[in-house]
Design a protein around this nucleic acid. Sequence first.
DNA 1: CGTCTATTTGAATGTACTCAAAAGCGGTGG
DNA 2: CCACCGCTTTTGAGTACATTCAAATAGACG
Lengths: 191, 191
Amino acid sequence: MTLIIDNLSKHISLTPQEQKLFLSKTEICQYKAKTILLHAGEICKNSYFVNSGVLRSFNSNDNSVEHVLSFACSGWWIDDMYSLLSQKPGNLFIEVLENAEVVLLPKENQEILYQKIPKLERFFRILAENSLVSHQERLMDNLSLTAEERFEKFCSKHRDLMQKVPQKQIASYLGVTPEFFSKMKSKMMRK
Amino acid sequence: MTLIIDNLSKHISLTPQEQKLFLSKTEICQYKAKTILLHAGEICKNSYFVNSGVLRSFNSNDNSVEHVLSFACSGWWIDDMYSLLSQKPGNLFIEVLENAEVVLLPKENQEILYQKIPKLERFFRILAENSLVSHQERLMDNLSLTAEERFEKFCSKHRDLMQKVPQKQIASYLGVTPEFFSKMKSKMMRK
DNA sequence: CGTCTATTTGAATGTACTCAAAAGCGGTGG
DNA sequence: CCACCGCTTTTGAGTACATTCAAATAGACG
């Protein structure tokens, strides 16, 4: 029922009291599609855990060209890690793509929880390490694969997102223009 | 004197006993340039902390095209995080570029240390989070900047490496061919 | 139904790559 | 200490992958 407790339980085990404490430091919010949870230039005050719906993080080059850093569906965490850690203005937006229920974990509560439940250090260590691994892989893919190969890999890894997300944003995630993505897609269909 | 203890002290404070315990679980090794500490296909058994010298991690596309994931100088950690976490064969090489003194922290000792000194969970959480931030930034740079811009950014961030590392490897890190890098460089010099 | 945005398609362009060959540089052995 | 060998860097010509700009088409939403 509480997806987020299940998520924690993947790497650490919490007593019922600890679970209660954890939940008491979070807040559940409902957001409609297109809501912007964080604007570039703001300081990121929360980690977001997605119960349902879809979010994305992206930056926007002065000239309104967007680059998608990540998507987050049910069961995923999303934030502007740079801004969250440094508590300085970041350059990411976080936007709701599909009506979403989101668990907010405020930065200051996270620090409190680290003190009260040190096991959480372990959880977020593992979370960060796993995230690091997948970012490293994506980086290497961007260096060594063609757009077509990256697209195929994306499809096999995230078939679910293909339905939910406008393809211009998948293009952006893969690092190509929407126009090129469209041409590439139809070319691959023909085979 | 012990660079690695200084490094830990940046984020957590250890008692002298804890410091001793930590060091007792590590091993210091000297390696000559060109030594390969980890081959693709092997399981990564250690985290490496660089006391002196320079290392790099890279993968190698079947057809012998190399892509540099990261460099590590004095004071930096390096490993194949994927393989280290999963204890499955990875696809990274770790190589010594410049004669190096390296602190080895074996995976199994790391687990022991997590139990004996839970504060280390915090340290490696912060380490992973910071690494994640810089990988995210590099990823976004690869999506949104030209090769020239990435090169300029690299220069201003890592002037020291420019001297120490063959430029074909900087090219590889930036995601361009050595030939193109050379042309780009001379073009930028002329300005 | 009309408006707004996303997608498709086409033509011209550019950034970066491949292949090839020459020049430079560093280390090693005689 | 010099000469040679291998590797890195440079340079050039031709090519390819992906972009830009523009316009037409399709879809989604109020």
